[in-house]
Simulated scan of single mutants.
Amino acid sequence: MAIKSFQGQRKKEAVVKKTPMTVKDYMTRKLITFKPDQSVEEVIETLIRYKISGGPVVNENNELIGIISEGDCIKHISESRYHNMPLTDKKVEQRMVKNVETIDGHMNIFDAANKFLNEKRRRFPVVEHGKLVGQISQKDILKATVRMKSQNWWK
């Protein structure tokens, strides 16, 4: 005697498209960068023109050597005025932050969010094989979470 199954046909499981969740997936790749021999005034004009708050400083090999920010430029203006010196005498390499903390492009986006909170930074450069490949900002983290809101919050 044959046994019949009363389960019926099984539905195929829906394929859930996983949203990428790494820094590399959300970082900005087209960056405005600065050179160490540029004047601080050029930086100020660029920050204003492109409505950015700072940017990486790279050498001729696209290796990250520093970051310059609005704050660095304001400090330059303040000191120049205090000493009654012209603004044109300083180069980026004299005002940039040289010890730059970077972030791994393969880091999970939520671990990156925690790094932003702990380090109190607005942006982190992403470096691969010694070359600058991108930058992630706090705003990029926010954009990532908006894209993932229909997904689970874990990987």
Rank of each mutant, 00 (worst) to 15 (best):
K18L: 14
T19V: 14
P20R: 07
M21P: 08
M21F: 13
T22A: 11
T22D: 11
T22W: 09
V23L: 10
D25M: 12
Y26L: 11
M27W: 05
M27I: 10
T28R: 06
T28V: 13
R29M: 11
R29N: 07
K30T: 15
K30I: 15
K30V: 15
F34W: 03
F34E: 09
F34V: 09
K35F: 09
P36Q: 06
P36W: 03
S39L: 09
V40G: 01
V40A: 01
V40T: 05
E42R: 09
L47F: 07
I48P: 03
I48L: 12
I48A: 14
R49D: 07
R49A: 11
K51F: 02
I52F: 03
S53L: 06
S53H: 07
S53Y: 04
G55R: 12
G55K: 12
G55S: 11
G55H: 09
G55F: 10
P56R: 01
P56N: 02
P56A: 02
V58T: 08
V58H: 02
E60M: 15
E60Y: 15
N62L: 06
N62A: 04
N62S: 07
E63K: 04
E63M: 02
L64T: 06
I65M: 02
I67H: 00
I67N: 02
I68S: 04
I68R: 01
I68K: 01
G71T: 09
D72Y: 04
C73K: 01
C73H: 02
I74T: 12
I74K: 03
K75L: 10
K75Q: 13
H76A: 14
I77N: 10
I77L: 15
S78M: 11
E79P: 04
E79Y: 09
E79T: 14
R81T: 10
R81Y: 07
R81N: 07
Y82N: 11
N84E: 14
N84T: 13
N84L: 14
P86V: 00
L87A: 04
L87P: 01
L87Q: 01
T88H: 00
T88M: 00
T88I: 00
K91Y: 05
K91R: 12
E93Y: 13
E93F: 11
M96Q: 01
K98Q: 05
V100Q: 02
E101L: 05
T102W: 00
T102C: 07
D104W: 00
D104T: 04
